[in-house]
Amino acid sequence: MTESLAITKFSDLANPTRFLALAQRILPYMAGVTALLFAIGLTMSFTTEGDYQQGDTVRIMYIHVPAAWLSMMCYSVMALSAIGTLVWRHPLADVSHKAAAPLGAAFTLVALVTGSLWGKPMWGTWWVWDARLTSVFILFLMYLGLIALNRAMDDPSRAARVSAVLILVGFVNIPIIKFSVDWWNTLHQPASVMRMDGPTIDGEFLRPLLVMALAFTMLFFTLHIAAIRNEIWRRRIATQRRMAARLAGRGD
């Protein structure tokens, strides 16, 4: 009984009209929470101590790590939506992965640029073709490819199906990115937060990092919901214009 109620609730949410009503209600709160988290996170980022070896460059971590985490989370959200497209053929799932791609590309770009700006003073180089950096660069190219593919096709549901297949094939890159630092000898350091034996970085750096990660995650979900809403509107406009054109044709 509870399960069927949960499924009904979920399918209600998947109805675009209900989604729009929900988005209208929650977006202002989400934007408010995001702004508040950024205010706290940025204050902590610049008031906590610097590292004894890295000095103040450790502050780059508070934006680099959340952006890198989002670049992978966004792709995972797209992969879940792609399953929704291929298995349930749900139009809201199509809209979800189409709306997420530009956001993922932007956060991946931020991760690459801030990583490069951190690499120069700490490693002595802007870029190196090690497994972690290369696999994230491939992720960036995949986002760009998906955006281009979606825009190259006129029929949105056909574009969504082709994109969904490509997203799921490309998902293989996500574990490669995550474990690249363990599988290969990389200049990039191994994980120090998401570890089986717990974080290995000091609380002084962990606290601002977690607040910033939460702020970035909230920013992503706020923008994603707003972008889904925009895409639903865009499709409704296209349908209504087609309908109007048909009516006008019948009038002649």
Binding site: D56, I63, T114, W118, P121, L219
Partner: peptide, 17 residues
């Protein structure tokens, strides 16, 4: 220390967001 790298990082991130 390294103000250029830190502020450029935050600047680029702010601009993209």
């Amino acid at each position: 220390s390294h103000a250029f790298y830190i502020f450029t990082s935050y600047g680029v991130t702010a601009l993209v967001c």
